Simulated scan of single mutants.
Amino acid sequence: MENLLGLVRIHVQRGINLAVRDCTSSDPYVVVRMGKQKLKTRVVNKDINPEWNEDLTLSIADPNLPIKLSVYDKDTFTLDDKMGDAEIDIKPFLEAVKMRLGNVPNGTIITRVIPNRENCLAEESRIVWTEGKVVQNMFLKLQNVESGEIELQLQWIDVPGSRGL
């Protein structure tokens, strides 16, 4: 891990208006992938507006690798159904971390990221200085599915002895 730049904690908050895959509802969970890393949340049963409220931590070695997020419906006897996917563009977030802000007031907005064709944002996302950390809240619009958004938050974690950004 000599190339480690630091860690990104992804707080997977909730799903909004997710697709129905089992009769009237779904049993959704989220899978986050980056390079060889793969993390997943717990399954929330029978809920298309699930609250996961769960932290997943990725180690960042190559800032150009996309973070891919997929939502699945847990099935007992068949393969889990796909309920859409999205990609997190962490470049603006990493640029904000690189600024090495120290003495700015809590709640200062460092950058605004506007939804465009290159990202999956459902609305403007703000990168904010919060309690000594760079934090980005975002709503991701799921692709390849009829409906659904995922609310999440990125937070940078410096690792002592890593190269840093």
Rank of each mutant, 00 (worst) to 15 (best):
K82W: 07
Q155S: 05
A122R: 02
L18Y: 07
L65C: 11
D80R: 13
I67Q: 07
N103E: 12
P66D: 12
K68G: 09
G6E: 07
E54V: 01
T76A: 05
S162M: 09
G148L: 03
D22Y: 12
C120F: 12
A122Y: 02
V145Y: 06
R9F: 08
N144A: 10
G107I: 00
M1N: 10
A122P: 03
L142F: 03
T108I: 00
S70M: 08
S59A: 11
N3I: 01
V104S: 03
E124R: 06
K133A: 15
N3E: 11
E131M: 09
P92N: 11
L142G: 03
V32G: 04
A96E: 02
G148I: 08
D85P: 01
D158W: 09
Q153Y: 01
N144D: 14
K38T: 12
I16V: 15
L7Q: 06
P63A: 13
R163C: 04
Q155F: 01
N17R: 14
S26I: 08
E87P: 03
N144E: 14
Q37M: 15
V20E: 12
I110N: 10
Q136L: 02
K40Y: 10
E118P: 08
T108N: 00
D62N: 15
N49A: 06
G35W: 07
H11P: 05
K36L: 13
K141F: 10
I157F: 07
L140Q: 01
I127E: 00
S25V: 12
G84L: 13
K98I: 09
M99S: 13
P66I: 12
I110V: 15
I150R: 04
E95W: 12
Q153E: 14
M83P: 02
M138R: 01
V135F: 07
L154C: 04
A86I: 04
M34L: 11
L65W: 06
D89R: 13
T108W: 02
K141L: 14
V44S: 06
E149M: 10
I127R: 04
I127Q: 01
I10N: 00
R42M: 02
R117E: 15
S147T: 12
E118F: 12
F77G: 01
